[in-house]
Nucleic acid binder design. Structure first.
Lengths: 198, 198
DNA sequence: CCTCATAACATAGCAGTGTTATGTATTGTG
DNA sequence: CACAATACATAACACTGCTATGTTATGAGG
Protein backbone atom coordinates (compact mmCIF):
# COMPACT_ATOMS: atom_id res chain seq x y z
CA UNK A 1 0.00 0.00 0.00
CA UNK A 2 1.38 3.39 -0.91
CA UNK A 3 2.04 5.38 2.19
CA UNK A 4 1.16 9.05 1.64
CA UNK A 5 3.52 9.99 4.45
CA UNK A 6 6.48 8.86 2.39
CA UNK A 7 5.28 11.08 -0.44
CA UNK A 8 5.11 14.14 1.78
CA UNK A 9 8.43 13.28 3.32
CA UNK A 10 10.16 13.22 -0.04
CA UNK A 11 8.50 16.44 -1.19
CA UNK A 12 9.36 18.22 2.04
CA UNK A 13 12.92 16.99 1.93
CA UNK A 14 13.28 18.03 -1.70
CA UNK A 15 11.91 21.49 -0.89
CA UNK A 16 14.28 21.72 2.04
CA UNK A 17 17.28 20.75 -0.08
CA UNK A 18 16.15 23.20 -2.75
CA UNK A 19 15.95 26.02 -0.20
CA UNK A 20 19.41 25.04 1.08
CA UNK A 21 20.65 25.30 -2.50
CA UNK A 22 21.82 21.69 -2.41
CA UNK A 23 21.51 19.72 -5.64
CA UNK A 24 18.43 17.51 -5.51
CA UNK A 25 19.49 14.21 -7.01
CA UNK A 26 17.82 10.84 -6.81
CA UNK A 27 20.38 9.39 -4.43
CA UNK A 28 20.98 12.46 -2.32
CA UNK A 29 17.23 12.84 -1.88
CA UNK A 30 16.68 9.40 -0.37
CA UNK A 31 19.97 9.31 1.54
CA UNK A 32 19.28 9.15 5.26
CA UNK A 33 15.53 8.78 4.86
CA UNK A 34 15.54 4.99 5.07
CA UNK A 35 13.60 4.67 1.83
CA UNK A 36 15.34 3.45 -1.28
CA UNK A 37 15.70 5.06 -4.67
CA UNK A 38 12.79 3.02 -6.00
CA UNK A 39 10.41 4.96 -3.78
CA UNK A 40 10.79 7.94 -6.10
CA UNK A 41 9.52 5.72 -8.91
CA UNK A 42 6.62 4.15 -7.03
CA UNK A 43 5.43 7.54 -5.78
CA UNK A 44 6.41 9.93 -8.57
CA UNK A 45 7.23 7.72 -11.53
CA UNK A 46 10.73 9.19 -11.71
CA UNK A 47 12.43 12.51 -11.15
CA UNK A 48 10.26 14.34 -13.67
CA UNK A 49 7.24 13.40 -11.61
CA UNK A 50 8.97 14.68 -8.52
CA UNK A 51 9.54 18.07 -10.14
CA UNK A 52 5.92 18.17 -11.22
CA UNK A 53 4.91 17.46 -7.63
CA UNK A 54 7.29 20.20 -6.51
CA UNK A 55 5.58 22.68 -8.83
CA UNK A 56 2.27 21.65 -7.34
CA UNK A 57 3.68 22.11 -3.86
CA UNK A 58 4.89 25.56 -4.83
CA UNK A 59 1.42 26.63 -5.93
CA UNK A 60 -0.10 25.11 -2.80
CA UNK A 61 2.22 27.15 -0.61
CA UNK A 62 1.60 30.27 -2.69
CA UNK A 63 -2.16 29.82 -2.35
CA UNK A 64 -1.76 29.39 1.40
CA UNK A 65 0.25 32.59 1.52
CA UNK A 66 -2.30 34.53 -0.51
CA UNK A 67 -5.12 33.22 1.66
CA UNK A 68 -3.67 35.10 4.61
CA UNK A 69 -4.62 38.41 2.96
CA UNK A 70 -8.07 39.05 4.36
CA UNK A 71 -10.22 41.67 2.63
CA UNK A 72 -10.31 45.11 4.20
CA UNK A 73 -12.48 48.11 3.41
CA UNK A 74 -9.93 49.20 0.79
CA UNK A 75 -9.94 46.65 -2.05
CA UNK A 76 -7.12 48.36 -3.97
CA UNK A 77 -4.94 48.15 -0.90
CA UNK A 78 -5.80 44.45 -0.74
CA UNK A 79 -4.72 44.00 -4.34
CA UNK A 80 -1.35 45.56 -3.56
CA UNK A 81 -1.08 43.34 -0.50
CA UNK A 82 -1.69 40.29 -2.70
CA UNK A 83 1.10 41.44 -4.97
CA UNK A 84 3.45 41.99 -2.05
CA UNK A 85 2.59 38.54 -0.68
CA UNK A 86 3.26 37.02 -4.09
CA UNK A 87 6.71 38.60 -4.20
CA UNK A 88 7.43 37.78 -0.59
CA UNK A 89 6.67 34.13 -1.24
CA UNK A 90 8.72 34.05 -4.42
CA UNK A 91 11.80 35.56 -2.80
CA UNK A 92 11.51 33.49 0.36
CA UNK A 93 12.01 30.31 -1.68
CA UNK A 94 13.50 31.54 -4.96
CA UNK A 95 14.61 28.11 -6.15
CA UNK A 96 11.15 26.68 -5.67
CA UNK A 97 9.70 29.68 -7.47
CA UNK A 98 12.07 29.04 -10.35
CA UNK A 99 11.01 25.39 -10.51
CA UNK A 100 7.36 26.44 -10.61
CA UNK A 101 7.88 28.33 -13.84
CA UNK A 102 10.51 26.05 -15.27
CA UNK A 103 10.54 24.77 -18.79
CA UNK A 104 7.89 22.11 -19.20
CA UNK A 105 5.26 23.83 -17.11
CA UNK A 106 3.21 20.81 -16.11
CA UNK A 107 1.09 20.30 -13.01
CA UNK A 108 -0.69 17.31 -11.52
CA UNK A 109 -3.68 19.56 -11.08
CA UNK A 110 -3.54 22.53 -13.48
CA UNK A 111 -6.42 24.19 -11.60
CA UNK A 112 -3.98 24.99 -8.79
CA UNK A 113 -2.35 27.73 -10.86
CA UNK A 114 -5.77 29.10 -11.78
CA UNK A 115 -6.78 29.11 -8.14
CA UNK A 116 -3.93 31.38 -7.17
CA UNK A 117 -4.83 33.73 -10.02
CA UNK A 118 -8.41 33.73 -8.77
CA UNK A 119 -7.31 35.44 -5.60
CA UNK A 120 -6.37 38.37 -7.79
CA UNK A 121 -9.52 38.10 -9.89
CA UNK A 122 -11.70 38.26 -6.80
CA UNK A 123 -9.69 41.24 -5.58
CA UNK A 124 -10.36 43.07 -8.84
CA UNK A 125 -14.05 42.22 -8.64
CA UNK A 126 -14.24 43.65 -5.14
CA UNK A 127 -12.51 46.83 -6.29
CA UNK A 128 -14.94 47.12 -9.20
CA UNK A 129 -17.91 46.55 -6.90
CA UNK A 130 -16.60 49.31 -4.66
CA UNK A 131 -16.57 51.67 -7.62
CA UNK A 132 -12.81 52.03 -7.74
CA UNK A 133 -12.51 50.72 -11.28
CA UNK A 134 -14.27 51.80 -14.42
CA UNK A 135 -17.29 49.71 -15.41
CA UNK A 136 -16.36 47.28 -18.13
CA UNK A 137 -12.91 46.26 -16.93
CA UNK A 138 -12.52 42.51 -17.30
CA UNK A 139 -11.43 41.20 -13.90
CA UNK A 140 -9.50 38.29 -15.41
CA UNK A 141 -7.67 40.59 -17.81
CA UNK A 142 -6.66 43.07 -15.15
CA UNK A 143 -5.67 40.26 -12.78
CA UNK A 144 -3.54 38.69 -15.49
CA UNK A 145 -1.82 42.00 -16.14
CA UNK A 146 -1.11 42.42 -12.45
CA UNK A 147 0.31 38.89 -12.46
CA UNK A 148 2.60 39.77 -15.34
CA UNK A 149 3.97 42.70 -13.39
CA UNK A 150 4.47 40.59 -10.28
CA UNK A 151 6.11 37.76 -12.16
CA UNK A 152 8.42 40.07 -14.07
CA UNK A 153 9.52 41.67 -10.83
CA UNK A 154 9.94 38.39 -8.99
CA UNK A 155 11.75 36.73 -11.85
CA UNK A 156 14.25 39.51 -12.47
CA UNK A 157 15.06 39.82 -8.79
CA UNK A 158 15.11 36.10 -8.03
CA UNK A 159 17.38 35.18 -10.94
CA UNK A 160 19.88 37.93 -10.27
CA UNK A 161 19.74 40.77 -12.82
CA UNK A 162 18.05 43.20 -10.46
CA UNK A 163 18.81 43.81 -6.77
CA UNK A 164 16.13 43.36 -4.08
CA UNK A 165 15.70 47.12 -3.91
CA UNK A 166 14.11 46.90 -7.35
CA UNK A 167 11.04 45.44 -5.66
CA UNK A 168 10.05 49.03 -4.89
CA UNK A 169 9.14 49.38 -8.56
CA UNK A 170 6.05 47.37 -7.73
CA UNK A 171 4.33 50.43 -6.27
CA UNK A 172 4.46 52.72 -9.34
CA UNK A 173 3.77 49.80 -11.68
CA UNK A 174 0.67 48.61 -9.87
CA UNK A 175 -0.47 52.19 -9.37
CA UNK A 176 -0.15 52.86 -13.09
CA UNK A 177 -2.14 49.71 -13.87
CA UNK A 178 -4.95 50.43 -11.42
CA UNK A 179 -5.17 54.06 -12.46
CA UNK A 180 -5.52 52.89 -16.04
CA UNK A 181 -8.44 50.80 -14.81
CA UNK A 182 -10.14 53.92 -13.55
CA UNK A 183 -8.99 54.49 -9.99
CA UNK A 184 -8.24 58.06 -8.90
CA UNK A 185 -4.43 58.59 -9.07
CA UNK A 186 -3.82 60.06 -5.63
CA UNK A 187 -6.10 57.72 -3.79
CA UNK A 188 -4.73 54.76 -5.76
CA UNK A 189 -1.17 55.63 -4.87
CA UNK A 190 -2.01 55.77 -1.19
CA UNK A 191 -3.86 52.47 -1.29
CA UNK A 192 -1.05 50.67 -3.11
CA UNK A 193 1.59 52.05 -0.76
CA UNK A 194 -0.45 50.91 2.23
CA UNK A 195 -0.95 47.42 0.88
CA UNK A 196 2.58 47.00 -0.39
CA UNK A 197 4.13 46.86 3.06
CA UNK A 198 2.15 44.86 5.60
CA UNK B 1 46.74 29.15 -30.68
CA UNK B 2 43.08 29.34 -29.84
CA UNK B 3 41.08 29.60 -32.99
CA UNK B 4 38.16 32.02 -32.52
CA UNK B 5 36.32 30.26 -35.34
CA UNK B 6 36.03 27.12 -33.24
CA UNK B 7 34.53 29.17 -30.45
CA UNK B 8 31.90 30.67 -32.72
CA UNK B 9 31.23 27.30 -34.26
CA UNK B 10 30.48 25.73 -30.91
CA UNK B 11 28.31 28.63 -29.80
CA UNK B 12 26.38 28.63 -33.04
CA UNK B 13 25.93 24.89 -32.91
CA UNK B 14 24.78 25.04 -29.31
CA UNK B 15 22.30 27.80 -30.16
CA UNK B 16 21.06 25.75 -33.10
CA UNK B 17 20.59 22.64 -30.96
CA UNK B 18 18.87 24.74 -28.32
CA UNK B 19 16.47 26.15 -30.90
CA UNK B 20 15.81 22.63 -32.18
CA UNK B 21 15.01 21.62 -28.60
CA UNK B 22 17.73 18.99 -28.65
CA UNK B 23 19.59 18.40 -25.40
CA UNK B 24 22.92 20.21 -25.49
CA UNK B 25 25.40 17.80 -23.96
CA UNK B 26 29.17 17.84 -24.13
CA UNK B 27 29.41 14.86 -26.46
CA UNK B 28 26.41 15.66 -28.65
CA UNK B 29 27.72 19.20 -29.07
CA UNK B 30 31.08 18.19 -30.50
CA UNK B 31 29.75 15.18 -32.43
CA UNK B 32 30.25 15.73 -36.14
CA UNK B 33 32.21 18.94 -35.74
CA UNK B 34 35.59 17.25 -35.88
CA UNK B 35 36.70 18.86 -32.65
CA UNK B 36 37.00 16.79 -29.52
CA UNK B 37 35.34 17.18 -26.15
CA UNK B 38 38.42 18.93 -24.79
CA UNK B 39 37.74 21.91 -27.02
CA UNK B 40 34.88 22.89 -24.75
CA UNK B 41 37.37 23.07 -21.91
CA UNK B 42 40.08 24.98 -23.76
CA UNK B 43 37.57 27.53 -25.08
CA UNK B 44 34.96 27.71 -22.32
CA UNK B 45 36.55 26.01 -19.34
CA UNK B 46 33.70 23.52 -19.15
CA UNK B 47 29.98 23.45 -19.77
CA UNK B 48 29.25 26.22 -17.28
CA UNK B 49 31.46 28.50 -19.33
CA UNK B 50 29.59 27.48 -22.44
CA UNK B 51 26.27 28.47 -20.87
CA UNK B 52 27.77 31.77 -19.80
CA UNK B 53 28.89 32.34 -23.37
CA UNK B 54 25.40 31.39 -24.54
CA UNK B 55 23.90 34.03 -22.26
CA UNK B 56 26.29 36.54 -23.75
CA UNK B 57 25.30 35.46 -27.22
CA UNK B 58 21.65 35.90 -26.30
CA UNK B 59 22.21 39.48 -25.23
CA UNK B 60 24.27 40.16 -28.34
CA UNK B 61 21.45 38.92 -30.56
CA UNK B 62 18.91 40.87 -28.55
CA UNK B 63 20.95 44.06 -28.90
CA UNK B 64 21.20 43.47 -32.65
CA UNK B 65 17.44 43.04 -32.80
CA UNK B 66 16.79 46.21 -30.83
CA UNK B 67 19.23 48.15 -33.00
CA UNK B 68 16.93 47.63 -35.98
CA UNK B 69 14.35 49.92 -34.39
CA UNK B 70 15.27 53.29 -35.82
CA UNK B 71 13.85 56.39 -34.14
CA UNK B 72 10.80 57.95 -35.76
CA UNK B 73 9.06 61.21 -35.02
CA UNK B 74 6.92 59.44 -32.39
CA UNK B 75 9.21 58.37 -29.52
CA UNK B 76 6.42 56.62 -27.61
CA UNK B 77 5.68 54.55 -30.65
CA UNK B 78 9.38 53.70 -30.78
CA UNK B 79 9.29 52.57 -27.16
CA UNK B 80 6.43 50.22 -27.92
CA UNK B 81 8.34 48.95 -30.95
CA UNK B 82 11.31 48.21 -28.72
CA UNK B 83 9.04 46.23 -26.44
CA UNK B 84 7.57 44.32 -29.34
CA UNK B 85 11.04 43.57 -30.67
CA UNK B 86 12.09 42.34 -27.24
CA UNK B 87 9.17 39.93 -27.12
CA UNK B 88 9.61 38.89 -30.72
CA UNK B 89 13.23 37.98 -30.02
CA UNK B 90 12.38 36.13 -26.82
CA UNK B 91 9.68 34.00 -28.43
CA UNK B 92 11.68 33.31 -31.56
CA UNK B 93 14.29 31.48 -29.48
CA UNK B 94 12.51 30.75 -26.19
CA UNK B 95 15.09 28.26 -24.95
CA UNK B 96 17.90 30.75 -25.44
CA UNK B 97 15.82 33.38 -23.69
CA UNK B 98 15.34 30.99 -20.78
CA UNK B 99 19.08 30.34 -20.58
CA UNK B 100 19.73 34.08 -20.52
CA UNK B 101 17.77 34.47 -17.31
CA UNK B 102 18.65 31.12 -15.86
CA UNK B 103 19.73 30.56 -12.32
CA UNK B 104 23.25 31.83 -11.86
CA UNK B 105 22.88 34.93 -13.98
CA UNK B 106 26.52 35.44 -14.93
CA UNK B 107 27.96 37.08 -18.02
CA UNK B 108 31.44 37.35 -19.47
CA UNK B 109 30.73 41.03 -19.99
CA UNK B 110 27.98 42.25 -17.65
CA UNK B 111 27.77 45.52 -19.57
CA UNK B 112 26.02 43.65 -22.37
CA UNK B 113 22.81 43.42 -20.36
CA UNK B 114 23.06 47.10 -19.48
CA UNK B 115 23.56 47.97 -23.14
CA UNK B 116 20.28 46.40 -24.14
CA UNK B 117 18.53 48.25 -21.33
CA UNK B 118 20.11 51.47 -22.61
CA UNK B 119 18.12 51.19 -25.80
CA UNK B 120 15.04 51.64 -23.64
CA UNK B 121 16.65 54.37 -21.56
CA UNK B 122 17.49 56.38 -24.66
CA UNK B 123 13.96 55.85 -25.91
CA UNK B 124 12.55 57.27 -22.70
CA UNK B 125 14.93 60.22 -22.90
CA UNK B 126 13.76 60.97 -26.42
CA UNK B 127 10.14 60.83 -25.31
CA UNK B 128 10.92 63.17 -22.44
CA UNK B 129 12.74 65.57 -24.73
CA UNK B 130 9.69 65.56 -27.00
CA UNK B 131 7.54 66.61 -24.10
CA UNK B 132 5.58 63.38 -23.94
CA UNK B 133 6.58 62.60 -20.37
CA UNK B 134 6.36 64.71 -17.26
CA UNK B 135 9.54 66.50 -16.27
CA UNK B 136 11.31 64.67 -13.52
CA UNK B 137 10.71 61.11 -14.66
CA UNK B 138 13.92 59.12 -14.24
CA UNK B 139 14.67 57.50 -17.62
CA UNK B 140 16.43 54.52 -16.04
CA UNK B 141 13.55 53.91 -13.67
CA UNK B 142 10.90 54.05 -16.35
CA UNK B 143 12.99 51.89 -18.67
CA UNK B 144 13.46 49.33 -15.92
CA UNK B 145 9.74 49.25 -15.29
CA UNK B 146 9.07 48.74 -18.98
CA UNK B 147 11.62 45.92 -18.92
CA UNK B 148 9.80 44.28 -16.02
CA UNK B 149 6.58 44.30 -18.01
CA UNK B 150 8.29 42.89 -21.07
CA UNK B 151 10.10 40.21 -19.14
CA UNK B 152 6.99 39.16 -17.24
CA UNK B 153 5.13 38.81 -20.50
CA UNK B 154 7.92 36.98 -22.29
CA UNK B 155 8.59 34.68 -19.39
CA UNK B 156 4.99 33.66 -18.80
CA UNK B 157 4.38 33.01 -22.47
CA UNK B 158 7.72 31.33 -23.16
CA UNK B 159 7.52 28.91 -20.25
CA UNK B 160 3.99 27.86 -20.92
CA UNK B 161 1.43 29.23 -18.45
CA UNK B 162 0.01 31.79 -20.84
CA UNK B 163 -0.84 31.36 -24.53
CA UNK B 164 0.77 33.54 -27.23
CA UNK B 165 -2.43 35.56 -27.45
CA UNK B 166 -1.56 36.93 -24.02
CA UNK B 167 1.12 39.04 -25.70
CA UNK B 168 -1.68 41.47 -26.54
CA UNK B 169 -1.63 42.50 -22.88
CA UNK B 170 1.54 44.39 -23.70
CA UNK B 171 -0.45 47.25 -25.22
CA UNK B 172 -2.60 48.17 -22.20
CA UNK B 173 0.32 47.55 -19.83
CA UNK B 174 2.76 49.81 -21.64
CA UNK B 175 0.04 52.38 -22.20
CA UNK B 176 -0.73 52.45 -18.48
CA UNK B 177 2.96 52.86 -17.69
CA UNK B 178 3.56 55.66 -20.18
CA UNK B 179 0.37 57.47 -19.19
CA UNK B 180 1.55 57.33 -15.60
CA UNK B 181 4.72 59.02 -16.82
CA UNK B 182 2.66 61.90 -18.13
CA UNK B 183 1.68 61.05 -21.70
CA UNK B 184 -1.84 61.92 -22.80
CA UNK B 185 -4.00 58.74 -22.61
CA UNK B 186 -5.55 58.78 -26.07
CA UNK B 187 -2.43 59.79 -27.89
CA UNK B 188 -0.39 57.31 -25.89
CA UNK B 189 -2.71 54.46 -26.75
CA UNK B 190 -2.46 55.22 -30.45
CA UNK B 191 1.33 55.46 -30.29
CA UNK B 192 1.69 52.18 -28.44
CA UNK B 193 -0.67 50.37 -30.77
CA UNK B 194 1.27 51.68 -33.77
CA UNK B 195 4.61 50.59 -32.37
CA UNK B 196 3.44 47.24 -31.08
CA UNK B 197 2.94 45.78 -34.54
CA UNK B 198 5.66 46.62 -37.04
C1' DC C 1 -6.18 -20.27 8.70
C1' DC C 2 -3.89 -21.09 4.66
C1' DT C 3 -2.83 -19.84 -0.36
C1' DC C 4 -1.19 -17.06 -3.50
C1' DA C 5 -1.33 -13.20 -6.69
C1' DT C 6 -0.25 -8.44 -6.33
C1' DA C 7 2.24 -4.55 -4.94
C1' DA C 8 6.09 -2.30 -2.54
C1' DC C 9 10.71 -2.79 -1.57
C1' DA C 10 16.01 -3.28 -1.92
C1' DT C 11 20.03 -4.34 -4.73
C1' DA C 12 22.83 -4.24 -8.64
C1' DG C 13 23.74 -2.90 -12.98
C1' DC C 14 23.39 0.10 -17.43
C1' DA C 15 23.82 4.04 -20.51
C1' DG C 16 24.63 8.61 -20.25
C1' DT C 17 26.48 13.04 -18.07
C1' DG C 18 30.51 16.48 -16.96
C1' DT C 19 35.16 16.33 -15.69
C1' DT C 20 40.00 15.20 -15.35
C1' DA C 21 44.38 12.74 -16.06
C1' DT C 22 47.59 11.26 -19.41
C1' DG C 23 49.86 11.02 -23.61
C1' DT C 24 50.46 12.99 -28.47
C1' DA C 25 50.90 16.44 -31.91
C1' DT C 26 51.21 21.07 -33.25
C1' DT C 27 52.60 25.61 -32.87
C1' DG C 28 55.21 29.77 -31.81
C1' DT C 29 59.72 31.39 -30.30
C1' DG C 30 64.64 32.21 -28.96
C1' DC D 1 66.94 24.27 -35.62
C1' DA D 2 65.72 23.06 -30.73
C1' DC D 3 62.56 23.39 -27.28
C1' DA D 4 58.99 24.91 -24.32
C1' DA D 5 54.22 25.77 -24.30
C1' DT D 6 49.85 24.92 -25.82
C1' DA D 7 46.06 22.64 -28.22
C1' DC D 8 44.35 18.29 -29.03
C1' DA D 9 42.77 13.27 -28.60
C1' DT D 10 41.94 9.24 -25.79
C1' DA D 11 40.57 6.94 -21.91
C1' DA D 12 39.11 6.64 -17.43
C1' DC D 13 36.44 8.38 -13.17
C1' DA D 14 32.56 9.71 -10.32
C1' DC D 15 28.18 10.83 -10.81
C1' DT D 16 23.35 11.18 -12.89
C1' DG D 17 18.55 9.00 -13.84
C1' DC D 18 16.71 4.77 -14.80
C1' DT D 19 15.59 -0.26 -15.15
C1' DA D 20 15.91 -5.28 -14.56
C1' DT D 21 15.85 -8.76 -11.10
C1' DG D 22 15.03 -10.70 -6.89
C1' DT D 23 12.86 -10.49 -2.28
C1' DT D 24 9.62 -9.27 1.10
C1' DA D 25 5.23 -7.82 2.76
C1' DT D 26 0.25 -7.15 2.10
C1' DG D 27 -4.45 -8.33 1.40
C1' DA D 28 -8.28 -11.03 -0.78
C1' DG D 29 -10.73 -15.68 -1.55
C1' DG D 30 -11.83 -20.33 -0.31
Amino acid sequence: MKDPAVRSLLIDRAAQMLAARQPVTLRSLVAGTGVSTMAVYTYFDGMDGLWTAMRQEGFTRLAARLATITPSEDPVRDLAALGAAYLSNALAVPDLYRVMFDAGFELENPAAADDTLHYLVRGVERASAAGRFRAGVDPLELATQAWMIGHGLASLVATGPLPPEALAHGVPLLTALFVSAGDAPDRCRRSVELGWRP
